[in-house]
């Protein structure tokens, strides 16, 4: 009990010291105003990063490749070390993996019962990408811009190009489902939903950008950097990671199922007379 109290006091002292230190530490001034920071978070026309020593790209693209690398590395490790040891009676970790795969597979099967092989794989990828990509901003990985300033790598989908890329790709997947299921009629069916690529792209962009802007705003002022980030950073990020994952995958599966469903011609009933 006495040791417990000592530990608590020590922790409080460390927190108080860090708080005092951060408040009274010398502030060297900002290189950009809050307006510039917010504007750049949306347009990415100032803080760009050189991609593989070549073209200057938005930080979101670098984040996207990093997220892919992290996901593929994790998948490779799971494939080598975990999946071969799968048992008929699953353990907790195996159960979690099976639940995630089963979730997207069942979503594909439920929404598109006729044709769902590729859809399952696609929404699994999209779900993993959106979820991990959104949580990626919590890591706060640093990069150096072409102007030589340090920058925190944002969530990939807070970049409009990434959001358009995923939104349009999802639409193309839906279109491919229509063609595979109904041929030329399927194209017509998919084209009827012409607003879908725009709505899916900008829904993702808007949701992720709003998170980014709030985080930018909070971190812009040092005094707001205590306790508040726990709520706006971690909880909000977690929440919209889950929501956006669910929304995009569900919409893609739903529209895919709708356009790939084969039409059955009703036989003309013989008239009684």
């Amino acid at each position: 009990m006495k040791q417990h109290k000592k530990g608590l006091a020590l922790w409080l002292a460390v927190v108080a010291l860090l708080l005092a230190g951060s408040i009274f530490a010398g502030y060297h001034g900002r290189t950009e105003t809050v307006q510039e920071a917010m504007r750049d978070a949306v347009l990415h026309n100032v803080n760009q990063i050189q991609f593989l020593g070549g073209k200057a790209v938005n930080p979101g693209l670098v984040s996207a490749f990093l997220v892919t690398a992290v996901l593929l590395l994790a998948a490779l490790l799971l494939r080598i070390f975990v999946i071969p040891k799968f048992r008929l009676a699953p353990g907790k970790f195996q159960l979690a993996l099976e639940t995630v795969v089963g979730l997207f597979d069942n979503m594909a099967k439920t929404n598109s019962p006729h044709r769902n092989g590729f859809l399952g794989a696609y929404i699994f990828m999209a779900g993993a990408y959106i979820f991990v990509g959104t949580l990626f901003e919590l890591l706060g990985l640093q990069a150096v811009t072409i102007g030589g300033h340090p920058i925190t790598l944002p969530a990939p989908l807070s970049d409009v190009n990434a959001a358009i890329g995923l939104g349009v790709l999802s639409y193309l997947v839906i279109l491919s489902g229509g063609i595979a299921g109904n041929g030329v009629k399927g194209i017509g069916k998919a084209l009827k939903e012409f607003s879908l690529p725009i709505s899916m792209s900008f829904r993702l962009f808007g949701a992720l950008l709003s998170g980014l802007l709030v985080t930018e705003l909070v971190y812009y002022f040092v005094n707001l950097s205590f306790i508040l980030p726990v709520v706006v950073g971690v909880l909000f990020t977690l929440l919209h990671a889950i929501i956006q994952t669910y929304v995009l995958t569900m919409l893609t599966a739903l529209y895919y199922g709708e356009v790939s469903e084969q039409e059955h011609k009703e036989k003309a009933k013989p008239e009684k007379g």
């Binding site: 996901l71 593929l72 993996l97 795969v101 794989a121 990828m125 993993a128 890329g165 790709l169």
Partner: peptide
């Protein structure tokens, strides 16, 4: 981004899904 997503789709499909 499409290139990235294509790599991710194939990789996750063959390694995990």
């Amino acid at each position: 981004h499409w290139l990235n997503l294509a790599i991710l789709t194939g990789g996750l499909y063959f390694l995990l899904f």
